[in-house]
Write a protein that binds this DNA or RNA. Structure first.
Lengths: 196, 196
DNA sequence: AAGAATTTTCGACTCTCAGTCGAAAATTTC
DNA sequence: GAAATTTTCGACTGAGAGTCGAAAATTCTT
């Protein structure tokens, strides 16, 4: 038998994959333990509840994604590059979004919502710092940075999380960035490439 | 015994109240039928599933709220007044938001999310028309109206649906409206009063 | 008005699923 | 190597969503 922490990580990995593929609501604890080849009691020895498992899975995901983002933040790069880098690293990995596309759509409301909240919460401070730097160097010009950054993040998750966006959405989104952060027209065009 | 449609409305009313007070997830079908004094089978004679009941309850809510909004849309009023009117009529009623405050917070994610989506979906076309009128009369100046309106709605639900907003949020929100719709600075200040 | 057809209601039953618990097995400590 | 601690086991409970066939009420026919 495994020693504690190892086993927990293993379960977290399994839960992560299953939540991703089949959705949180469509994955039962029994599914997880079967996949892991353990008994009910063992599962509940490591997790207080199914929901706590979700919480930890999300924490894991976000932490991983935040890791790279923080690196970039510290680097010595021009503001647009930093923004580009942070956004791409926070973006769902191919693994996450491509698994059968089954991911964030049908009825994964709960998981989706929790990820969204946590993502906003952790990304706002990071991006705010970059925007501050952007203000120093004249790229941006505005006050109440965290509030503005949050708005842009909320918009972007509405637009891009579910794949439902058109060319017009992109145009307006870029315009929104420039207007809300006080950048010169056209300077945020590079964002378009990040969306692809 | 009641005749069909009447009974269904009655059940819808009961479900509506219970979902509001105790939340969708914390209300069992058994709770509903007990309150209504009917048997399980009768409930399922009228609804395919619990989720369909939620769907219909939300449809009912939104329809009611949209009613008043449409009236205002048709009226012959200055743009700011129309916006104010529509927003207030789409806003959760005191009944909805005040019931023990238990409403939209703890773990009503599913109901909250469904309401949000449906609300955005129905409000975008309405407000877009007003903005168009605002462009004719010079209040606004922009293209891609529905996209912009949607963004503002999404922001506002993030900000106000859960009561978590500060003075700065309001300032930035108003600024966002003006910038995104191309209104002159200060012209949207009246929105502040709608939030209170 | 009586029977037939239809609508509405009933409630016991099934199935799935999250979570519990006491005891067994493995591991660590002394 | 015995006692203490950690980890695992799986049968069991309880809750809740949804099913189903049959009874009761209502409406339709003639």
């Amino acid at each position: 038998m495994k020693k504690g922490e190892k086993r927990k990580q293993e379960l977290l990995q399994i839960a992560y994959k299953m939540f991703l593929i089949r959705g949180y609501e469509n994955t039962s604890v029994d599914d997880i333990i079967e996949e892991a080849g353990i008994a009910k009691g063992t599962y509940y020895y490591y997790f207080k509840s199914k929901e706590q498992t979700l919480e930890e899975v999300i924490g894991m995901m976000i932490e991983q994604e935040t890791e790279a983002a923080k690196q970039i933040l510290e680097a010595d790069l021009p503001v647009p590059q930093k923004i580009a880098g942070i956004i791409s690293s926070l973006r769902p990995t191919r693994e996450e979004s491509s698994i059968e596309g089954a991911l964030m759509q049908p009825e994964n409301i709960i998981m989706h919502d929790k990820i969204r909240r946590k993502l906003v919460e952790t990304a706002v401070p990071l991006l705010s710092k970059v925007v501050e730097q952007g203000i120093s160097d004249g790229t941006f010009s505005c006050s109440n940075i965290p509030q503005r950054v949050r708005m842009l993040l909320v918009i972007s998750s509405d637009l891009f999380d579910e794949g439902r966006y058109t060319e017009e959405d992109i145009i307006v989104f870029i315009d929104a960035i420039e207007k809300l952060l006080g950048a010169k027209p056209g300077t945020m065009e590079f964002v378009r490439d990040l969306i692809q």
